[in-house]
């Protein structure tokens, strides 16, 4: 039987094993040392690797992103941690204008193998400045890869792959998933970037979900199964590059698709997914409009109840999927 660990431990294990294997890998970020990271992801790593490779910084997001970008440019493989995805706004200049473009701008003569890890999402009562989901901003930037793992198994394989990848990778973790458990092999393994995973097979409709919405969709699918609605759930795992093949194949099979994400609907990744499906041969197989269920058009509020209703919950997914199952063009 495969051992079970948490999503958080899978992040730590992937970083630790890669650091043991490759002396070029190091971790840099705020409070990643003694504090163990704001979410305890790197707890214990300072003792193991010392302050030269577990690099604590003052509050300098642009500096952290720059340090990673520059170190990668000369052949290191840095992992930069930005404490909350909200603060990638500050790191973005180095990431978006510099890291993402170095290779192309320099005619392919530069490589920038860095990973920027950051936890996203709401549900912790941390309000407007500590709850946002900005993945689609980075998806919009050629030169970046964007990874959004949803299980401990995927975390480990995708993070190791991201560290070894020769491009800058934005690796988006979800705070609410940190404590979730799942089977993870102890040995190292990789999962290719750009490979979706069918998290549940079904016949009646496809849900393409990202982040914590994969787990919520799975819970919704279990309940709808009792009503005889058989749902297939596709987890893209990496948003860029996107595994369009798996998504299109699933929609062709079921003829119906619901897209679910936490980020605000307008301008969110769901629009891209819907367009990819509509432009593909799956269009001819659609038996109903493509539907999206996503974050409301508001910043994440503090009040617990408001926060809860600002993003899709299991009951919303059930309702929307049921509606779609009954829809006919």
């Amino acid at each position: 039987m495969v051992r079970e660990i948490t999503y958080l431990e899978a992040v730590r294990e992937a970083m630790t094993q890669e650091m043991e294997r490759d002396p070029k890998v190091f971790l840099i970020g705020e409070d990643v040392g003694l504090y163990g990271g704001a979410f305890q992801v790197s707890y214990g790593m300072l003792e193991k690797f010392g302050p030269e490779r577990i690099v604590d910084t003052p509050i300098t997001e642009l500096g952290i992103a720059g340090a990673a970008t520059g170190a990668a440019l000369v052949g290191m493989r840095p992992i930069a941690e930005i404490m909350f995805m909200d603060f990638t706004t500050l790191a973005s200049e180095q990431l978006v204008n510099q890291a993402a473009k170095l290779r192309f701008m320099f005619g392919g003569r530069a490589t920038d193998p860095m990973v920027l890890r950051t936890p996203a999402g709401s549900g912790t009562g941390a309000a407007e400045h500590h709850s946002q989901s900005f993945e689609n901003w980075f998806v919009h930037v050629p030169g970046l890869k964007v990874v959004m793992p949803t299980t401990p198994y995927d975390v480990k394989g995708l993070l190791i792959e991201s560290i070894r990848d020769d491009n800058p990778v934005v690796f988006i973790e979800h705070k609410l998933l940190y404590k979730s458990k799942g089977p993870v092999p102890e040995e190292m393994y990789t999962i290719p970037l750009g490979k979706a995973d069918v998290k549940r097979a079904g016949r009646d409709l496809t849900i393409v979900a990202t982040g914590v919405m994969v787990q919520r969709s799975l819970a919704a699918a279990d309940q709808l199964a009792q009503e005889g609605i058989d749902i297939e759930i596709v987890d893209p795992r990496t948003l860029r590059p996107l595994d369009t093949e798996t998504i299109i194949a699933s929609v062709k099979k079921t003829g119906k698709v619901l897209i679910v994400h936490e980020a605000v609907k307008t301008g969110g990744f769901g629009g891209e997914l819907a367009a990819v499906i509509a432009e593909s041969e799956a269009f001819g197989y659609l038996e109903a409009p493509i539907l999206r269920l996503a974050g409301k058009e508001v910043p994440i509020p503090y009040n617990r109840n408001l926060e809860y209703h600002a993003v899709p919950q299991v009951e919303n997914i059930i309702e929307k999927a049921r509606e779609l199952a009954q829809l006919k063009v």
């Binding site: 009562g125 941390a126 309000a127 407007e128 400045h129 503090y302 009040n303 408001l306």
Partner: peptide, 9 residues
């Protein structure tokens, strides 16, 4: 803040 901001805002 009508419950929107909390301690931090």
């Amino acid at each position: 803040c009508r419950g929107r901001g909390g301690s931090m805002h």
